[in-house]
Simulated assay, not measured.
Amino acid sequence: MPATTSQFKIPYPTGGDPVRDAPQTLQNAMQIIDDYLHEPFVLIDGAKYPINGAAIPPENWQFAGQKPWFYAAFDIPAPYIPPAGYTFETFVLESSSTTFVCTSELKRDQKMITCRFIQTWSNDPKALKLIGWRLVPTSTDPNRLN
């Protein structure tokens, strides 16, 4: 039995002895996990994209409907242009009314997301305070990860 494990040809980040370097290797791995948990991301074709976030509703938009359902459509800035095969889902993060928001269209050329909006029994456009977004794949292939 060798006195050292340096004969193992396993590449480790510190490049030395895998047994003696285990604390540093573990610390490096934990830093990667901490970075991911702090700001979740996905790697697509080698590029790093955040997977979720928030947006403030636009100013001075108008309702198109009347009581009891108030509805509208408006654009919010896309946080970035997602890669092909991905789009953004939008939803309500904060509202003082019963409010629903969903994505209608991603306008890639304008870097805008068109949102559809429905709110019940309140005609206050300021009730919607915060819109959430998340990156989602548009593939309909359930086996795309196999």
Rank of each mutant, 00 (worst) to 15 (best):
84 A>G: 10
37 L>G: 01
106 L>Q: 11
82 P>Y: 00
119 Q>K: 01
74 F>M: 00
23 P>K: 13
78 A>I: 04
145 L>N: 15
10 I>L: 11
38 H>M: 09
88 F>G: 01
87 T>E: 09
121 W>H: 15
50 P>T: 06
146 N>C: 12
13 P>S: 07
122 S>T: 13
63 F>R: 08
86 Y>V: 09
115 C>Y: 03
95 S>Y: 01
83 P>C: 05
122 S>D: 13
81 I>C: 11
64 A>S: 09
49 Y>E: 05
138 T>V: 13
82 P>N: 03
22 A>P: 00
102 C>W: 15
1 M>K: 05
99 T>A: 06
121 W>R: 15
27 Q>I: 12
131 I>H: 04
129 K>D: 01
20 R>I: 06
146 N>I: 12
126 K>S: 13
37 L>T: 10
117 F>W: 14
57 P>H: 03
55 A>I: 08
68 P>M: 10
105 E>W: 15
142 P>G: 12
128 L>E: 00
133 W>S: 00
8 F>N: 01
108 R>V: 13
90 T>Y: 01
6 S>Q: 05
24 Q>G: 08
111 K>L: 13
46 G>A: 09
21 D>L: 00
92 V>F: 09
77 P>W: 02
57 P>T: 02
47 A>K: 14
74 F>I: 00
140 T>R: 13
112 M>C: 01
134 R>D: 06
49 Y>R: 08
33 I>F: 12
73 A>F: 07
32 I>L: 09
123 N>F: 10
86 Y>I: 11
13 P>L: 06
23 P>E: 13
144 R>K: 13
91 F>N: 06
49 Y>Q: 05
121 W>I: 12
83 P>H: 02
50 P>M: 08
55 A>P: 00
97 S>N: 15
111 K>M: 14
7 Q>W: 08
99 T>M: 05
82 P>I: 05
136 V>H: 06
38 H>Q: 12
45 D>E: 15
140 T>I: 12
128 L>A: 01
39 E>L: 10
146 N>K: 15
125 P>T: 04
15 G>N: 03
105 E>M: 15
12 Y>F: 06
36 Y>C: 04
129 K>L: 00
89 E>H: 13
113 I>F: 02
121 W>K: 14
48 K>G: 08
57 P>Q: 03
112 M>Q: 12
81 I>K: 12
24 Q>C: 08
109 D>S: 15
128 L>K: 00
108 R>N: 10
3 A>R: 11
42 V>R: 11
30 M>Y: 14
129 K>A: 01
41 F>C: 05
74 F>G: 01
20 R>W: 07
9 K>W: 07
146 N>E: 14
15 G>A: 04
94 E>P: 08
135 L>V: 05
137 P>Y: 09
113 I>W: 03
96 S>Y: 01
90 T>E: 03
140 T>F: 11
54 A>I: 02
63 F>V: 06
56 I>C: 00
57 P>D: 00
27 Q>S: 14
113 I>A: 01
18 P>K: 06
46 G>I: 10
13 P>H: 03
106 L>R: 12
92 V>A: 06
70 F>A: 00
37 L>E: 10
53 G>W: 06
133 W>M: 02
116 R>W: 07
